[in-house]
Design a protein around this nucleic acid. Structure first.
Length: 985
DNA sequence: ACAGAAGCTTA
DNA sequence: GTAAGCTTCTGTT
């Protein structure tokens, strides 16, 4: 081995256990031999060897070996007999795989190394030293913390299951100490799995802090008396011996008298026939195929390295954003006019400039590496002003706010990152504190720009109409900045651009998913800098350098994403969807969230008491009936009692083999005269209302505003609907009288009113419009009862005096159409035989052939394009619509049918919301939008303006599709006002 | 501490 | 039969 060579050492034993637990169990088809870990091992080895040839990855091994433990007895047992003594025997379906994995290693033409009396880790340590002395580098394929002590300038680790490199910074990040102190850290913390004692009460965080303070273990033990915390001091003094023996146990032996030298590990090309022979024996069909292909077409692989075109640096030319220069594009808050709407039909063809630009940007992004160490920490006003000037010059700046909370209504600003070009990013710390403060918190750190001074410099930039501000999930930043008196505009949001481009595709629209997809990069995670769980700290406690790396990287990534994604909008003809349905809604929702709604805690607390009483009463009755006190909330226990011990009829199993105890099933049993199921259903209702609503809602009342501020997600659904969370105010009960009481807690004060305005049958109206169904259009035009008309058409009965059961069935069919009807579903819904449901559907299609055509057209379109569109051009992707799996394909067909209708309705209410504020302003009305529940808007207004407000609201909502689309069916809005949501609805 | 299943709430 | 979010229980990390 010589300088420049690179040794790969696989921790084979570690891998076996990890693969066994992490991967799904797998057995050989022909004889059920368990081979899950072997399969994982082979796939990992193959992938490593493939990656090894790809010079792009940067590391090309010249030497390769797989290291195993020999037996469980090692020299450590002589030091400390209890070492690894509490290890239980490996699972029985893992045992036969140990030998197989050694065979697999040989089949890959790789050396298999093990030695009696030593652990694999000792051999790895020894070979690391030998490689280093020979001038070579080493990569250890493992994620075991016991090996991290070996990491250094020439030794790195790689976790193949998480595709993660572990170098010195990652060790420091994870454990708080550099690799050379890992031994001391482990000596203090011990290891319960390996039975290394350590010092009781000392975990990794404390250990790292102590080592920071005292340098090393011996220093700490010598000066332990200086430790302030009494318990900690006593424990360390009392357990000094344990710490020392632990240190010996965890120290890897790097001078094992190894039998094989590094030269024996020289990497050879895989022997195709030998390897394929083994894989065939294991019946790993897909890997066999891949290996066969790869060993046959090696020359082709080498040529497939991507060409590079560097363009991203020219980002701040006049053509940024594909024709949407910040000054010209003032669509935010501008009047939606007739002329502008013409854009809806714009569809540039492939090969146009936008497509070219999009392609160039993508190539540029993929080839430009992200370097987190290159970011600047902006610590003084002069530097900040220089950055602001740079952003003005560029005309764009990506921003990312760092604050104390994920709730923007409670978050306090800690810092802000900005990026002006790829790789050019900085972080401005405002309010970081020293991390080692006690309960009172540490003091503010030096060399930060005080919040007020920083914001005074930033505000003009953030509000500058000629500078486009870019963020990922901008609404969060907008709410926070608004609370600090800054009105950010104009802006772009990379999350929303991605949503417009790719709703329905398997990747999400979060920063991590986008960075991975478009930049092939995994940004530093918030968790990595703050820690997670109970050991996590607020962002204000994060070290400023770490915060800089993290926040500035996010701003950098956001800017790069924008460069890649923005031109794609134009290339795909989706500019107007983004500019008319997505972006303008952001500030509207930000204001709604910021307003919040008033909730009466007394009403909730009274209800909670009533519910608790009712539930307790039912519990006693239930215990009496079943004869023991089980946990009624456990479907498992409940099912076992009901259908096992008590032998109730009609039980069915869920997909995990448990007895089903669904409400539907219990209702059926109750209808047959059983007493118990009814009580269980009632108990569930009461406990549900209590836990989800009356008990949870008060916790969401903001201490400052005394109101509840939900959070709306713009990019969470596939269809274009919003979603609401923390708390979800889109599923407040309404169907039952008990549940509706919850709504009485949503209130206004005496001088105000809540106005609720909801679209009547909006999805059916959209159906009547897009499917062009004459009878339905007529019925809606006449303001008739749509379900009754449907029933009348289908069953030839007059609307007058129609039995309610007939109308109910027609209603179920109408809803079924919206959901992408199936005989199975309709039969379920109506509790009728599948054949009968089929007959209904057939009849329905005979009477409304346009609907069958609509359904068939939608399916064909989705199959051809992979997506469907709403009447406003929103695209929803269904990549599985061409699946060969019939049930998956059918599901995608139903979803695509529904998406056109649900998505169009969602677009309509979005348009109404975007126009609402201006319409109310113009009419000099003070009403404010508070909530959206898919087809309903809730406003708060002064009592005296109620009568004037309702017509304005109704007008905006009923005409929301205009002028982009003139619907052939009128939209109808019902509205009323009251002092609480129950009565207003 | 987290993830998935089951169950229940809404449009 | 569509689209969501939250709570509890249960088992794993």
């Amino acid at each position: 081995m010589k300088k420049g060579d690179h040794l790969f050492l696989i921790d084979g034993s570690g891998y076996i256990f990890r693969a066994y637990h992490a991967l799904p169990p797998l057995t050989r088809k022909s004889d059920s031999l368990p081979v899950g870990a072997v399969s994982g091992f082979c796939n990992m080895l193959w992938k490593l060897m493939q990656d090894a040839r790809n010079t792009d990855v940067g590391i090309v091994p010249t030497h390769f070996a797989v290291i195993f433990d020999y037996s469980s007895k090692t020299f450590r047992n002589d030091l400390y007999p209890e070492y690894k003594a509490n290890r239980s025997a490996p699972p029985e379906d893992l045992v036969p795989q140990f030998g197989l994995i050694r065979q697999a290693t040989r089949a890959f033409n790789l050396p298999c190394v093990e030695m009696e009396g030593f652990e694999a880790d000792d051999l790895i340590a020894t070979y690391c030293r030998l490689a280093c002395e020979a001038g070579g580098d080493t990569t250890i394929i493992s994620s075991d913390k016991d090996l991290m002590q070996l990491v250094g300038d020439t030794v790195g680790m790689y976790d193949p299951m998480k595709d993660r490199q572990i170098g010195i910074p990652e060790v420091v990040e994870k454990w708080g100490v550099p690799p050379e102190k890992m031994i001391d850290l482990q000596a203090l913390t011990g290891d319960s799995v390996d039975n290394v004692p350590g010092v009781p009460g000392i975990g990794p965080k404390t250990a790292a802090q102590l080592l920071e303070q005292f340098g090393d273990l011996e220093g700490l033990l010598a000066r332990a008396g200086e430790i302030k915390q009494e318990k900690r001091r006593e424990s360390i003094i009392a357990n000094a011996d344990k710490a020392r023996i632990s240190r010996q146990l965890v120290t890897l032996k790097n001078d094992v008298p190894v039998a094989e030298g590094l030269d024996d590990f020289l990497l050879h090309a895989p022997d195709g026939p030998k390897l394929i022979g083994f894989l065939k024996t294991m019946e790993f069909t897909s890997l066999t195929r891949r290996v066969a292909e790869a060993t046959g077409t090696e020359a082709g692989d080498v040529q497939a390295v991507a060409v590079t075109v560097e363009r991203a640096d020219n980002a701040h030319g006049p053509d940024i954003g594909a024709g949407t220069s910040p000054v010209a594009r003032t669509g935010v808050g501008s009047e939606p006019g007739q002329a502008a709407e013409a854009e809806t039909t714009e569809r540039p063809k492939q090969g146009d400039t936008p497509s070219l630009l999009a392609a160039l940007r993508l190539e540029g992004a993929a080839t430009r590496k992200i370097d987190t160490s290159a970011y600047q920490c902006i610590r003084d006003i002069a530097t900040l002003k220089a950055w602001v000037a740079e952003a003005r010059e560029a005309g764009i700046a990506a921003f990312d706010v760092r604050a104390t909370s994920t709730d923007p209504m409670q978050a306090e600003l800690i810092g802000m990152a900005m990026a002006t070009a790829p790789g050019r990013a900085g972080y401005i710390p405002f309010a970081h504190k020293s991390g080692n403060g006690d309960l009172l918190g540490g003091g503010a750190l030096e060399n930060q720009i005080p919040l007020r001074e920083a914001l005074a410099v930033l505000k003009p930039l953030l509000e500058d109409r000629s500078v486009l501000k870019i963020a990922q999930n901008l609404k969060y930043d907008l709410v926070i900045m608004s609370r600090y008196g800054i009105d950010v505009a104009p802006f772009d949001d990379t999350m929303l651009i991605s949503y417009v481009l790719d709703a329905g595709t398997p990747h999400g629209h979060g920063m991590d998913a986008l960075a991975d997809k478009w930049l092939g990069h995994r940004p530093l995670q918030l968790k990595d800098v703050t820690g997670s769980g109970k050991s996590s700290v607020g962002f204000d406690q994060v070290d400023i350098d770490r915060a800089t790396a993290h926040a500035a990287e996010d701003a950098d990534v956001t800017l790069r994403l924008w460069l890649v994604l923005k031109p794609r909008l134009a290339a795909k003809g989706l500019v107007s969807v983004y500019e008319r349905l997505e972006r303008p809604l952001v500030p509207v929702l930000a204001r709604m969230e910021q307003r919040g709604i008033s909730v009466d805690r007394q009403i909730l607390s009274r209800l909670s008491g009533e519910l608790a009483q009712g539930a307790a009463q039912l519990e006693e009755e239930i215990y009496l009936l079943i004869g023991e006190r089980i946990n009624i909330g456990s479907p498992k226990q409940l099912g076992d009692i009901l259908f096992g011990r008590m032998g109730l009829p009609g039980g069915s199993k869920t997909k995990t083999g448990q007895w089903s105890t669904s409400a539907q099933l219990l209702e059926d049993l109750a209808a047959e005269g059983h007493e118990l199921p009814r009580k269980i259903v009632d108990w569930r209702q009461l406990t549900k209302l209590k836990s989800t609503y009356t008990d949870a809602l008060p916790g969401f009342v903001n201490p400052e505003t005394k109101r509840v501020h939900t959070s709306y997600a713009l990019a969470a659904t596939t269809t274009g609907r919003l979603s609401s969370s923390d708390p979800n105010l889109q599923n407040i009960p309404v169907r039952t009288a008990e549940g509706r009481k919850i709504r009485t807690a949503f209130i206004t004060d005496k001088s105000h009113r809540l106005v609720s305005a909801d679209y009547s049958q909006i999805e059916l109206r959209v159906l009547a419009h897009v499917a062009e169904i004459p009878q339905l259009r007529q019925a809606f035009a006449d303001g008739a009862d749509i379900h009754a008309i449907t029933a009348s058409e289908m069953f030839n009965v007059p609307v007058e005096g129609m039995p309610s059961e007939v109308r109910r069935r027609a209603k179920a069919i109408n809803f079924g159409i919206i959901y992408g009807i199936s005989a199975f579903g309709l039969a379920n819904q109506l509790s009728i035989p599948r054949e009968e449901a089929s007959a209904y559907i057939k009849k329905y299609f005979e009477r409304f052939p346009g609907i069958r055509d609509y359904i068939e057209e939608t399916k064909a379109y989705a199959r051809e394009h992979g997506f469907v569109e709403t009447i406003f051009g929103r695209r929803i992707h269904y990549p599985d619509i061409r699946s060969s799996n019939p049930s998956l394909r059918a599901f995608n067909e139903r979803a695509s049918i529904n998406a056109r209708l649900q998505g169009t309705a969602a677009d309509i209410i979005r348009r109404a919301m975007i126009r609402m504020e201006e319409a109310l302003d113009k009419a000099k009305l003070s009403a404010r939008m508070l909530l959206q529940v898919h087809d309903e808007l809730i406003f708060e207004t002064v009592e005296a303006e109620v009568e004037e407000t309702i017509p304005v609201v109704r007008h905006v909502m009923e005409n929301a599709a205009m002028p982009a689309v003139s619907m052939s069916v009128p939209l109808h809005v019902d509205a009323r006002a009251a002092n609480n949501w129950d009565e207003a609805h």
